[in-house]
Design a protein around this nucleic acid. Sequence first.
DNA 1: AACGTGTTTTA
DNA 2: CGTAAAACACGTTG
Length: 956
Amino acid sequence: MIDTVSDETRGTLLVVDGHSLAFRAFFALPVENFSTSSGQATNAVWGFATMLAQVIDAEKPDHLAVAFDVKGGTFRNTMLPQYKGTRDAAPENLLSQLPIIQQMLDALGVTYIEKPGFEGDDVIGTLATMGEQAKYKTLVLSGDRDAFQLVDDWITVLYPGHHFKDLKHMTPEEVLAKYKVTPAQYPDLAALRGETADNIPGVPGVGDGFAAKWINQYGSLESICEHAEEIGGKKGEALRANLDQVKLNRKVNALVRDIDLGVSVDDLTFGGIDVDKLNELFSSLEFGSRTKSRVLKTFNGGVAPKSNGGTGVGENGNGKGIEISDVEHAQDAETLNTWVAKHLPNPTGVLTDAGNDESDGRFSIDHALRCNGDVEHSWVINASGNAKPGRVTANAITLQHGDAVLVIEIRGNALPDAALRDALNDILAKYAGAMVMHGYKEQLHLFASLGISLPQPLFDTKLAGYLVQPDFHADTLEQAAAHFLDLHVEEKKEEATQGLLDLDDDTNTVGEESQTSTLLQHVGIIAELARTLAPQLDQREQFGLLRSLELPVSRVLYGMESQGAKVDMHRLDTMRDTFAAEARQAQEIAWDFAGTNVNLQSPKQLGKLLFEDMGLKPTKRTKTGGYTTNADALQKLYFNYASDERASGFLGALLKHRETNKLKQIVATLIDATNPSDERIHTTFEQTVAATGRLSSVDPNLQNIPNRNAAGREIRSAFVPGEGFESLMSCDYSQVELRIMAHLSGDESLIEAFKSGVDFHKYVASLVHGVPVDQITPDQRSHVKAMSYGLAYGLSSYGLAQQLKIRPSEADALKAKYFATFGKVHDFLESCVSRARELGYTETMFGRRRYFPALRSTNRAARDAAERAALNAPIQGSAADIMKIAMIRASKALADAGMNSRIILQIHDELVVEIAPGETEQVTALVRDAMENAVHLDVPLDVSTGVGADWQLAAH
DNA sequence: AACGTGTTTTA
DNA sequence: CGTAAAACACGTTG
């Protein structure tokens, strides 16, 4: 790849730090998932093989050697007894795998070298030097930064980043850019800084930055030592105190580069695979055939198989890869139509939509609608661009079927002509039944910006991936490919859900050719994802969830996002100024009491001031050992120190500042997020983020606008109906989650409580305490209410006590009484967890799954957390499903009735509707009905509604 | 500049 | 020592 040396090179030599790679593999992969039935851990072996294969595929070396450390001391231990003390403590689980790795290398025909008395690092240094002298371009794969000293024009260190696959190519330029010193000076820097991984102390308080500064000032470590007296400050002092240590470090971190290894670089070819031996080894390790073929393919002949070049998506180990060879471009309707006629599969007729069968109260799922066969005859469409509501820009549309791809480039956010647009609209309508895409909602935005309406596709790989594994979140298509397909392709540019390139950005250096290749790659990945995910969805009978729930919801959300929520900018501006002034005032007061201008937003500074300088007694600690300064703790302190004028004065002002400053910030964010052209906020509802099935809202988050106290609630008054609308309506489900619990548990008492019609929490309190409803005290009611809400979270007695500020024993008693009254609820909650333990996953009423591997964790805290999550998931998830059904129904009802009113926001159990003039009554009835009758449970779904001139006034 | 921590807001 | 989220400021790290 380096042109300046390529014409003289004899080839490429890859030198691997065997220990470093094994360590990396061991800690990156969970042992639980990689061990044989007899209990032998294999994670490091597997990781070693696949990581090495990855690097060989990427770098295509023709010569290869792996260096290992040997047991027994080296010259370094004599100098520094604690040297690599941390490494010797390697777990037995890992040590036992090292010989296996060496066996594997033997079978693969790869040379590995260990030299008694020296470390792997010295072997590496020697090999790299030999490679360079023999005019090989030399790559050193190592996670040990000491290797950076080897870097020069011929030698590059491949240094793994956070994810192994993003290997950094450390060239002289890279080293200089990163550390501000040359590779030759790097050991000087390391000596000053020390190396925690090797248990080598440096100068305390000196990191890369200061070390580099000194080296550049004095030229070398030697010179620094000579001038140590001139360096001032604490750090200079620390340097002088540790001079001996630093000098010793420097001796130890110099790599030996001239060991006699008894081999020459030319000998280090690889690929003489002993297939029988490898088969035997891999079988005994219980590796699958996929791993075997992957490894064989890479090592075969010492030259990695030719890849598909920059265009296509290569094979993925299943042998089902896509080869894209036939790329065309279209800028007019005729070319498009010709291509479609030639390449797209014939439409097989309109698919029947799964309906909402209310006969058994269960949202019906059309099980007949299978996907396996259909996906084989499907085609992919993908618009690329920025799908952010409010500033949507599309830059290309790519169609794919089989090995044929058509690219339509878009300039200036518009199609070349109306004929092309009409042609696309026709094609989409006709071929939608076999259409596959990634992210229907985003695609709707992109296509709409071009005047094209996008029908519901057969399959959506983004939504499907979410249904299959809701806890996994892929930010890019490449990540989805890596996760679901084990297909590792490079990401051209981060940013954007679809990995899209921005043509408008003139700083963009990515060439057009490369852009096209990215487009091809994306449709290839989508096709392959569909092929992998469809059978999984089918097998779990979740295809209906995709087609009847998620895809239609995408459409509703697209509408909500593109409409946005109108805000009263004047009101927002006023509020920001008011909150800002209050916050400033509170800050002044706080500073007066404190006598110092502490940063009120710094927990660290606050902790120091309160608990060290002012000497208050800390209430709690944070997990990292700091002092807790959250509102709860401050409130307690405020009461405890009520007589201390300074303390309580400061605390009161601080609390006030916290509150108002937060509100100020929220308002400022809203102002910033408002689209100036329509004074509307276009949030993005994330449909594939919350693991339970809920939506989330980002950029800005409109699902956490304050609602608890009056000051915050004011912010809601800034959300108003836009032009052509007369009011806002808010509709929310009351106690959905509790109702779901009542239904799912079949608890007669709780069901009766909902049917009774009296104040629910009072009624429950009367059952729990065994006293008549009219004798329930406010305390009893609120305590029972908290208990009811806490149920679905797996609330502990301790937590309940904390929240209600009562003694744990009282909380315990309440909990016992509650469960005695609602025994079936208790049993139900238990059954959620035990079922999840058995099946490995939980399910909502509609078959939405969430997997809980942590239920089998050996870590108690992790297991407990998983149990609470497993208890909550079916409840929160079912509520989310019900709301999604309601949204689809409401949206359809409004459209069918010809209403202009529309849903603009969803806040988990609440819908906000922008009401057009004269439609209030009808819309209220329609939305209420859509929500109440989304499903039929054994308890009624109660919906309360309110209408007003703004969101706050619409509250009820 | 990128990340983790602490805090706060919602349902 | 309560489930699900998003966002901000700070301070440390690279």
